[in-house]
């Protein structure tokens, strides 16, 4: 089980140090390990999609950041729509109730094989979040190698084009339908039983995430911020 905090434009001030760690781990995983980007002096990895539209999920275990990932509503510019639209020959998703999913990472010390680790818990949290927010489908540019993982969870996977090799890795545009069965499936496979998503401070709804505050105040779960954040 993880505590997976939702961080967006309106509550990120509560997560100063944790967000710094998040971008630092992204640097470690995507710039150094995968070599997707040239190194920079700051040691942080950010791109053009880390805007006010982005929602970051930060996974904590016993107060330490162990995993993270990012969601961007598909009616905004996304990695798939702006950089790799050629992967989606059957059409790029463009609805605000669809989520472009990128930058999933698990810190090296927390990685293990199989479903019952941090990565599995993080994916269970992601599906919990999507259902909670009324997101109909989540996905984007995926590594083809990992597609069987989603099948193991019983997820309905729709690919949007044939795979292509990007920087030596076979990638495919794929969307996963968000449904209660998908959450049950990933929970059964990962052994995660309870809710992991935590909301702290003023959190925007994903589907109507306009800068103006929502008219209906969002229920905010009172989970204390781990001390490490502050």
């Amino acid at each position: 089980m993880l505590d997976v905090h939702v961080v967006c434009a309106t509550n990120r001030h509560l997560y100063g140090r944790a967000l710094d760690d998040y971008f630092r781990w992204r640097y470690r995983c995507y710039t150094l390990e995968k070599g997707w980007f040239p190194p920079n002096e700051l040691g942080l990895e950010t791109d053009q999609f880390d805007t006010d539209d982005a929602f970051h999920l930060l996974g904590f275990h016993e107060g330490s950041l162990v995993a993270g990932t990012r969601l961007v509503p598909c009616h905004r510019p996304t990695l798939l729509s702006e950089v790799f639209p050629a992967l989606a020959t059957r059409g790029v998703p463009g609805a605000r109730h669809q989520a472009d999913w990128t930058r999933m990472f698990v810190v090296p010390a927390s990685r293990r094989r199989g479903h019952q680790g941090v990565a599995g818990a993080m994916v269970a949290a992601l599906m919990e979040y999507c259902l909670d927010e009324g997101i109909s489908a989540v996905g984007g540019v995926q590594e083809t190698y990992w597609l069987p993982r989603w099948a193991d969870f019983g997820w309905d996977v729709e690919i949007l084009g044939l795979p292509q090799t990007i920087a030596g890795t076979s990638c495919v545009a794929a969307m996963f339908r968000c449904a209660p069965e998908a959450l049950e499936g990933v929970r059964a496979a990962t052994g995660i039983e309870g809710m992991q998503i935590r909301r702290r401070g003023p959190v925007l709804r994903f589907v109507d995430a306009d800068p103006a505050p929502a008219s209906q105040p969002r229920r905010i779960d009172q989970h204390p911020v781990p001390e490490a954040f502050l």
Partner: peptide, 17 residues
């Protein structure tokens, strides 16, 4: 080959199910 690639992945998923 890309077509064979994805077809085998979905065949594997179906076989597993």
């Amino acid at each position: 080959l890309a077509a064979l690639h994805v077809m085998s992945v979905f065949a594997a998923g179906a076989a597993r199910a």
